[in-house]
Amino acid sequence: MRIIFVGDVMGKIGIDTLSSYLPRIKATLHPQVTIVNGENASNGRGLKAEQFKAILAAGADVVTLGNHAWDQREVNELLKNNDNLLRPANFPGNNVPGSGMTVKQINQEKLAIINLQGRALMNPLDDPFTKADELLKELSDSEMHVFVDFHAETTSEKAALAYYLDGRVDGVVGTHTHVQTNDARILPKGTAFLSDVGMTGSYDGILGVKKSSSIQRFLTQRPTRYEIDDQGRGQINYCILDIGAKNKIRAAQINPDRPLSEL
């Protein structure tokens, strides 16, 4: 089974870049499942119905979220009514809208997709390690494939969860930091791991926001309103996972310095 996983879609330029490149990526690589993190799609903060529909129209089968999951009010209804939209499973409390896991039938195989959020340097959610254990216990089919989008800040927490789940899931890929890491590898017990898949959005901004906003923050050390960079050149960051008897993972980018022709 081949999975394409696309990193955090950031603002309108992220949607436009995804819509332009994802169909061509899929036509070349022929994935069975395409997963897209969309938690920054609505001007950098959360997801609205308009962006959710656009991400699906671009070719996503499942959309995951993260720490901005609740920034848009309408996401509550979206989560209740769409099993292909996930929020981190370890949000605390009862009656949390939606789910952090979905199971898809892919020809003769099944794939469970899990969305978790880290706690290091982030809001104090429930323990993602314990929540992962709980979710895996719910999966009765021992032959089921499992993919985890771990939305977390620190590479240490991402690596720790990946090693904790090594041999129990097929892949753990990090999101949130918006910079693709160069550590795609297979762990000792067979789990594919990448610390961060990167983002989809502005290539000339800083993590998707206007350079001036970020520079001003560092110059003054005062609160600055970040503005999404929705003009100029775009980029898409993603990874390809081939899961089966022997898992494989490869990180990939399309941007002005790595054009589509190099795909």
Rank of each mutant, 00 (worst) to 15 (best):
H151W: 05
Q253Y: 01
Q221P: 00
D242E: 15
V6W: 06
D71F: 06
R233N: 13
A49F: 08
K104M: 14
E157P: 10
R250F: 00
N107F: 04
D133H: 11
P128Q: 11
K246S: 15
N82D: 12
G38R: 06
M199H: 10
L86E: 06
T200A: 12
P256D: 09
K189D: 13
G190A: 10
T175D: 07
A89Q: 01
Y238N: 12
G208Q: 12
A49W: 05
D133W: 07
G44M: 12
L207I: 15
N40P: 02
L85P: 03
L29F: 12
T191Y: 03
L18A: 12
R250Y: 00
E157R: 04
T191H: 00
T130F: 06
V197S: 10
T224F: 01
I25P: 09
N182F: 03
M10K: 09
S42M: 05
Q253S: 14
L260T: 04
A251M: 06
A252K: 14
A160L: 00
S156A: 15
A132E: 06
Q108C: 03
T177E: 08
V103P: 00
I240L: 15
V173T: 08
D71S: 14
M1Y: 07
T220P: 03
I3M: 05
D196Q: 11
Q51L: 00
S202D: 09
R168T: 08
K26A: 12
C239G: 07
S213Q: 10
K211G: 14
Y238P: 12
D170N: 15
N94C: 00
Q235N: 02
A162T: 06
